[in-house]
Design a protein around this nucleic acid. Structure first.
Ligand code: ZN
Ligand code: ZN
Ligand code: ZN
Ligand code: ZN
Lengths: 163, 163
DNA sequence: AGCCGAATGTGATTTTGTAACATGACGCAG
DNA sequence: CTGCGTCATGTTACAAAATCACATTCGGCT
């Protein structure tokens, strides 16, 4: 199920990782009767290949260049679909989107966002979720969804900055 | 120091709580040589009185109605000042701002945001911060700032919805 | 008075996100 | 095959959020 924490930061065969995740997403979509249409598929692919957060208009530019529609709703609708079905996530601090690296797990992960290179990693969220649930309960607050985004420096940029 | 968790959700003497926090903020500003000018002071007061998240343009409208400038930078600059100096917080999910109920504690709290009435409470963040720090460390990621926002239902709206 | 830096006012612009409606593709009932 | 309903896409226009650039004003200081 949960693959051995392939964090975006670690050096990895990127083409492979992106292709692999796309394949899993496609299988998943088929399984659930979701229609991963050309635009949607292409957007997911863009996000996977970038392996970082992309703004809606950045996505739109790519789409337009490839012959898809060139108006905002085209990008926003595809992104909304991906987010709603767990193929991508929205990063509120950046007004941007990133592909989900663990599709099909129905998670609301913790994001680690590098302020220098914009790389985004999903970290295991369970401990954080538990702590948060406790805080909510203490206040009588019923938590439905959570957003956890940490800004900082990824290992690579950290090393670069130290130099 | 940390007062006994006066969460926004609990029934409380609102005028008193707002006035009190404003007074503390003023003392704090004086102490630190920060200039809590009329616009800045008024914006903080607005946020405190509302006791919920307010958008920048909502703030701006109030300011304009009271004779301050009526262009976006007026509101954004005041809000930026308040956020940078710990008198207010930004809520990324809402593109909005809320007064800090614990100024001077240099915290990045956990927010509990009611999706029904927009009330915002700051909950103790230490357990969450610890869990998050651990997740970051495991990935070699140096966390500098965190955003934790939980959406859900406050006690009041929860009761109302159950009815 | 004269100067300086911080704060404010103002106009214009950019960036981000939606509403509303028209068109086109697909599956299916008749 | 025809007509119909549904979903996805395209397109126009617009709204909301945020920033840029520049002029002006206000304190404190010399
Ligand atoms: Zn994910
Ligand atoms: Zn980095
Ligand atoms: Zn606070
Ligand atoms: Zn509520």
């Amino acid at each position: 199920m949960t693959q051995p924490e392939t964090l975006a930061f670690h050096a990895h065969d990127h083409a492979h990782c992106a292709g692999d995740t796309l394949a899993r997403a496609e299988a998943l979509a088929a399984e659930q009767g979701l229609r991963l249409t050309p635009v949607r598929r292409r957007v997911l692919q863009l996000l996977l290949e970038a392996h970082r957060a992309m703004g809606a208009y950045e996505v739109l530019d790519r789409l337009a260049a490839e012959g898809f529609g060139n108006q905002p709703p085209v990008a926003y609708r595809a992104l909304e679909f991906l987010v709603e079905n767990g193929f991508a996530h929205r990063l509120h601090r950046l007004n941007a989107f990133a592909a989900c690296m663990h599709p099909g797990e129905d998670h609301s992960p913790v994001f680690l966002i590098c302020r220098s290179c914009d790389a985004v990693a999903e970290a295991p969220a369970d401990p954080v979720r538990r702590a948060l649930a406790e805080a909510g309960e203490a206040a009588g607050f019923a938590i439905e969804r959570m957003t956890v985004e940490a800004m900082g420096l990824c290992p690579a940029c950290r090393a670069a900055e130290a130099a």
